Amino acid sequence: MVDTPIDGAGGDGVLLILGPTASGKSGLAIDIAEALNGVIVNADSMQVYRDLRLISARPSDAEMSRAPHRLFGFLDAAEICSAARWAKLAGEEIEAARRRGKLPIVVGGSGLYVRALTEGFSPIPDVGPLHRQRAQGMLKKMGAEKFHARLAEHDPDIAARLETGDSQRLIRAMEVYLATEKPLSWWQALPPEPPMLKLPAFRLVLLPERSTLYERCDRRFEEMVREGAVDEAMALGARGLDPDLPAMKALGVKQLIAAGRGQILLEQAVADAQTATRRYAKRQMTWLRHQIVADHVCDTQDMERLKADIFPKIREFRLTAS
């Protein structure tokens, strides 16, 4: 991919390609990036993890070779990528692409990530691993009920909103208090940081017909399994990571680990993961319909027709964006 502007370059706009899982976002983004000198910036909260190449449906090496890809597979599964952390990194990648005359193409369906980029986020400081490990140790030693009670002493507002079994959010609230000596609710009440995205944005939303989307979800998961997703899940499970880490909660991980360990049949694991994926896709569709003001909404029944329709609009947007 050349670094000098080509057809479609010009202006300072950003293209957001948003849609539910299995809607065809990645393939469309690559085609647009090839044609309009783009850089693809990941906005999928699971595709940031290198351990989840298959399970997160990250673009293949061959696909990624067709256009520059950023923020894909750059984190270890033991890390937590908050929406604020991602938004800062995405903002840097968008600015770097803009300086090189390229079209930044943000692609994903993670609502928190998109909102952090376009609307801002609470100014909660980054918390280092030592505070997280201390909070995790407290939970393990005290047990869920006593840990919840201890959090309530420091942050009654957050504790009142969380169940004792919500270990990930309880640990998050405690680690923030341990690191800053201020409750998480105090930080959340502050005015949000300004959005990282300060450039004009063209929002392209893919909303396939539901039955078509569900069929794609099912078929894609079966393909993942054929390509080795069980081995990928087992390698992750063998690390003994905290089950509440985001990577460990990726769709299909729990089911495939259980199948790999002989606890359930693979057929049942696949069926359960497919059901969970369809439910997630449905939630994404609902969020996109109600939370995103789109510049162009389309299904993806005919991708070639979509590209013929949308490419001129993106070119026009780029030439007029400033």
Rank of each mutant, 00 (worst) to 15 (best):
Gly91Thr: 11
Arg98Lys: 13
Ile94Phe: 11
Arg99Asp: 13
Glu92Pro: 06
Ala84Tyr: 12
Leu103Ala: 03
Ser110Gly: 06
Ala90Asn: 12
Pro125Gln: 12
Ile124Leu: 09
Ile94Gln: 02
Gly109Phe: 08
Gly91Ala: 11
Leu103Asp: 00
Gly101Asp: 02
Lys102Glu: 01
Arg115Trp: 08
Leu89Phe: 12
Tyr113Cys: 02
Ser110Ala: 15
Ala90Arg: 08
Ala97Lys: 01
Arg85Cys: 13
Arg85Ser: 15
Ala87Tyr: 05
Gly91Cys: 09
Lys102Ile: 02
Thr118Leu: 14
Arg98Tyr: 09
Ile94Ala: 01
Glu95Val: 14
Ser122Leu: 04
Gly111Leu: 08
Leu117Gln: 05
Phe121Gln: 04
Ala96Gln: 10
Glu119Val: 10
Leu117Pro: 04
Phe121Gly: 03
Gly111Gln: 09
Glu95Trp: 03
Pro125Thr: 10
Leu112Asn: 10
Ala90Leu: 12
Thr118Glu: 04
Ala90Ser: 14
Glu92Asn: 11
Trp86Met: 13
Gly101Val: 06
Glu93Ile: 13
Leu112Gly: 15
Gly108Cys: 06
Ala116His: 01
Leu112Ala: 14
Gly108Thr: 09
Thr118Asp: 02
Arg100Ala: 13
Glu95Gly: 05
Val107Asn: 01
Arg98Asp: 09
Glu119Gln: 13
Arg100Thr: 01
Val114Phe: 11
Leu103Val: 10
Gly108Arg: 01
Arg85Glu: 15
Pro123Lys: 10
Arg99Tyr: 12
Ile94Ser: 04
Ala84Val: 10
Ile105Gly: 00
Lys88Gly: 07
Ala84Asn: 07
Glu119Ala: 14
Ala96Phe: 06
Lys88Trp: 07
Ala84Ser: 15
Lys88His: 13
Val107Ala: 00
Ile124Thr: 13
Gly120Lys: 01
Lys102Asp: 03
Val107Phe: 00
Gly101Leu: 01
Trp86Arg: 05
Val114Gln: 00
Leu117Lys: 07
Ala97Phe: 00
Arg85Ala: 15
Glu92Gln: 15
Ala96Cys: 12
Glu92Phe: 15
Gly111Met: 15
Gly91Asn: 06
Val106Met: 10
Glu119Phe: 01
Pro125Cys: 02
Ile105Ser: 00
Val106Asp: 03
Thr118Arg: 08
Gly120Asp: 03
Val107Thr: 14
Ser122Met: 06
Ala116Arg: 02
Ser122Glu: 14
Arg115Ser: 04
Tyr113Thr: 11
Leu89Gln: 13
Phe121Ile: 07
Phe121Asp: 03
Leu117Arg: 04
Leu103Glu: 00
Ala116Ser: 11
Ile105Phe: 01
Val114Asn: 00
Arg115Val: 09
Leu103Thr: 04
Gly101Asn: 10
Arg85Gly: 15
Ala84Lys: 09
Thr118Phe: 08
Thr118Trp: 09
Gly109His: 05
Lys102Phe: 00
Val106Thr: 06
Glu92Ile: 11
Leu112Thr: 10
